[in-house]
């Protein structure tokens, strides 16, 4: 038994990105449009889209493939279904039109943090963004300010390195003795760190941050938030807290933040990143820690 495979459909058109500099070294920054990314008033109503196809324009780049070495946009018409997300749309395009369309994704429920893309000029999780909430056609690009590996896949190594820099693990050797004794933590303290522990390492914040774009050594919002998560956790002792503050108040730490709130705006987990950074600044001041 065999089936005849039809030729995969070619994308209907290809478009060269407006930014001619974008040779895979960095993803498009100029493309950032002046929009807030909030649900657009002009978007089509979901019911209007039903039974229609939606147009997505997807960034393509592959250093190995001749006609993809020059970045371009491919257009795909995808049949709309109620509840369709940006991730659903690119998966449909991949599975039905072009199996080489490449992006990271896994859980489909906003917890693995794999599919942060630059959608209509804003960092968003593909799986959590409804097509019906966007202005059409929908433009899907890799996260800006990170090297593009291929299509929508960016190199996350620098992001991970920054996360590791802040010693992201609880430092407490003096544990309760006796059988099965946990460390005590008040509900208030757990509440205090709760939002900071929700980070899924998607990298949207770092990509949205102008400071991180200009200073490669800047720890960035996610790593500082990780430091906050431990610095505010009462299960660590005062001297560890001071050690943590010294890490984040150095030259490329919290003081770089200019409170533009771009990270807070794009965080898919609604973590108040800018507030956390500000609070650490205040803590550092209280302890008279200033790198300068």
């Amino acid at each position: 038994m065999s089936t005849q495979q039809q030729e995969p459909e070619q994308p209907e058109s290809q478009e060269t990105p407006k930014d001619p500099e974008m040779k895979g070294a960095e993803s498009p920054v100029d493309e950032k449009e002046k929009e807030t990314g909030e649900i657009d008033q002009t978007t089509a109503d979901e019911t209007e889209l039903e039974g229609e196809t939606v147009l997505i324009k997807v960034f393509r780049y592959d250093p190995e493939v001749a006609d993809k070495q020059e970045p371009r946009f491919d257009e795909f018409h995808v049949p709309f279904e109620k509840g369709m997300t940006v991730l659903d749309a690119v998966m449909y395009a991949r599975d039905h039109y072009d199996s080489s369309l490449t992006f990271r994704h896994s859980c489909r429920q906003a917890v693995c943090g794999s599919d942060a893309f630059f959608v209509n000029g804003k960092q968003r999780l593909g799986c959590k963004t409804q097509m019906a909430d966007l202005e059409h056609p929908v433009r899907i690009e890799p996260l800006p300010h990170q090297e593009v590996v291929k299509d929508l896949v960016v190199d996350m190594d620098h992001f991970y390195d920054q996360m590791h820099t802040v010693e992201p693990y609880l430092q407490q050797d003096d544990l309760p003795t006796g059988d099965l004794e946990e460390q005590r933590q008040s509900r208030e303290n757990r509440e205090k760190i709760k939002m900071s522990t929700r980070c899924i390492w998607c990298g949207a914040c770092m990509s949205s941050c102008n400071i991180a774009a200009g200073d490669n050594e800047y720890l960035g919002p996610a790593a500082i938030n990780k430091a906050y998560r431990f610095a505010m956790d009462d299960r660590e002792d005062e001297e560890v807290k001071e050690h943590r503050l010294r890490i984040i108040e150095q030259e490329h730490g919290v003081w770089r933040c200019q409170t533009q709130f771009s990270c807070t705006e794009v965080c898919p987990k609604d973590i108040p990143l800018t507030e956390h950074i500000q609070e650490l600044k205040r803590e550092a001041v209280k302890k008279n820690l200033k790198f300068w």
Partner: peptide, 8 residues
């Protein structure tokens, strides 16, 4: 179908 060795 994807001819690339990169992130295939």
């Amino acid at each position: 179908d994807d001819p690339s060795r990169t992130f295939n």
